[in-house]
Design a protein around this nucleic acid. Sequence first.
DNA 1: TTGACAACATACCGGGTAGTATGTTCCCTG
DNA 2: CAGGGAACATACTACCCGGTATGTTGTCAA
Lengths: 244, 244
Amino acid sequence: MAIDAREDTPADAQQGVKLNETANRGSPRLAARQSRDQILEAAAECFKENGFAATSIDDVAYSLGATKGMIYHHFRSKIDLFFAVYQRGMEINFEATEPETHSHAKPLERLARMSMAHSVALMAHQPFQRVLAQGVAMHQTGSTTAAQRDTLSTLIKTRDTYEELFRTAIEAAVADSGTELTNPSLASKSFLAVLNSTVFWYSPRRRNATAEQISIALDLVNYALRGLGLHLPEDAIDDWKKHL
Amino acid sequence: MAIDAREDTPADAQQGVKLNETANRGSPRLAARQSRDQILEAAAECFKENGFAATSIDDVAYSLGATKGMIYHHFRSKIDLFFAVYQRGMEINFEATEPETHSHAKPLERLARMSMAHSVALMAHQPFQRVLAQGVAMHQTGSTTAAQRDTLSTLIKTRDTYEELFRTAIEAAVADSGTELTNPSLASKSFLAVLNSTVFWYSPRRRNATAEQISIALDLVNYALRGLGLHLPEDAIDDWKKHL
DNA sequence: TTGACAACATACCGGGTAGTATGTTCCCTG
DNA sequence: CAGGGAACATACTACCCGGTATGTTGTCAA
């Protein structure tokens, strides 16, 4: 009986689409998890659209066909909801990229694989990624209370360790190529700036845009690597092109 | 008598610093211009700190030691103020970069000079540049009324022509080098992404940070050019290093 | 001198929104 | 088959903030 749990298509999270009123009947814990996930996706979409400050809890609730009470049942405050979305965004990135760091491939190929994974994940989960960007901007400035600043700092540290993944991979690849970087910190910042640039202009064309995303990612990775003085071998490129 | 007009140091635009109460006595037009400029800088700072939506007119007024009435005397609405700041930011960029486009130097050097000018201006006027970024983000999403969307579109077009400056300079430099770009649009986007990346992490150390800024800009331009498959000649690099 | 106007400050209004307090409806356990 | 609690919805409040209406002061032109 626990399985009238709906397989929600993401498209279900649209404006005014009432949640199945007989839903959330199974294990309460499971139901809560699903609701929470739906809130996170809806919130990510809203935050992406209008930014944190300009998004009201009612906006998020309405996009779920639910009410404010529901959201405050799952999250203590608006900022808490934002933090949760941020965290989910980081989880997405880690799950996409971290496995590649354990690859036994050569440093250059490992870096390339990480970069491709990162870039594609970025385009595939745009709303969450824009929230990440907002969170970083938030951290540089004023997030009112001390408690908020604390949690935010914690979240940013997660991001820092994520960037650290690339930093070490970059240095390994450069060292392996026999060259050297004048300013490793700046280089890795620039490297990620290229990969992250899609956040500001990319929006998926249609369903199953993965081919398009891979193609873009390949170009970006190529550019970013050349900036470091590295070059992706032809066979590796062809390997990726098969996926499109 | 028109010159008790103060030479305002930027540091004067601090929280709670009352404007000289006997100021703005000279030509009313001149006084208005000064007030307007002060508002623009204060607003840029506030928008940079907390973002457009989270910044109140009272915030901006308070940072000037003035009141809401003063600001509404110079600007019709909050969004109008934002647009004015945006426009000022674009003016800054054009004044810095556009002269270099008329240079008779070789395409590569011209592109390099443009990029350096752009990058340094970006770091020297950070608050305005962050407002530019916000404006772009705003444009991608929802800016309520139709009139606002119109003016915003106009402003974005200014930005597009600015990017066009780089686009053509990039293609000229690449063509001159004998190579070719697989995807010119993506390449120029990546190129600017590198140069613009400072907006998200750079904050000036102390007074007269121009040396630091030039040094950073040089690294960024180097990276961005290599991404295109180009290389800045050593003597050009040395030329810039003299300025530091 | 006067009065018109620029350049503000003060006072106030109304809509929107974060957060809360309180129902209501199921489910699941004992 | 109670009744406790999870998972919401409804109703309400208090506050913030954009915008306006109005007051005040100095200046300049006639």
